[in-house]
Amino acid sequence: MTDAIITFRSVSKHFGQLKVLDEVDLDIHKGEVVVLIGPSGSGKSTLLRCINGLEQITGGDLVVNGMSVLGGNKVLREIRQEAGMVFQQFNLFPQMTALQNVAFGPQQVRGMSARQARELARELLAKVGLADKADHEPAELSGGQQQRVAIARALAIKPKVMLFDEPTSALDPELKQEVLNVMRALAAEGMTMVVVTHEMCFAKQVGTRLIFMEHGKIAVDGRPGDVIDTPPNDRMKDFLQHV
């Protein structure tokens, strides 16, 4: 297909002797919401982190928005501007306010003026429902609020794809929804998303595609409704019973 925004061409990733991704082939297209599930250690985070070069692939090629992750540091920085990432642990910059966290990227990376960047940051904070928390430091925010700031921070770079690595796993149940709702809204706007999560409701409602990983390989790849209700493979069935 021509509109693939992320293409894995038999991508492998080793940590020393350990093979964590095993010749993965995968095309992700514009507007898709790909939900990644699988047992612990199956390589979900690694797959995600290879896309924005936080992990270096050791075999094959991976192309993001027409650029190869093997293209060197400069290309990698451009890829990262096209693929925003949200982490399980939020990772907000603790010495900056919510607003500064969001404004920092566009100013440093996109070359916006401080004023423009602040305006954009205010807009994005409003979008994730935190207009009133702009001047708070991360430590003064709840986990759910921190994660929403983190999403705004990633969006501020104007990426074409958003990568989420278990964005709600560190949150109390009652705080998960506020983050999932922001992600829902994002998907509704047509944002291309790759989401590692255990939230099967979200996968069914929002996901356009579900991938089950096992031992560094894609074991199942299908429509969330279909493959969640009738898992095509016993290990996936097992897995679903335990989440």
């Binding site: 924005n52 936080l54 920085r77 451009e78 990262r80 501007q81 925003g84 990432m85 982490f87 642990q89 990772n91 907000l92 910059f93 603790p94 920092f104 990227g105 440093q108 990376v109 983190a150 921070r153 990633a154 501020a156 770079i157």
Partner: peptide
């Protein structure tokens, strides 16, 4: 994680 968050926004 903080370094990675910085790198991830393209710094």
């Amino acid at each position: 994680g903080l370094s990675e968050a910085g790198l991830a926004i393209g710094l």
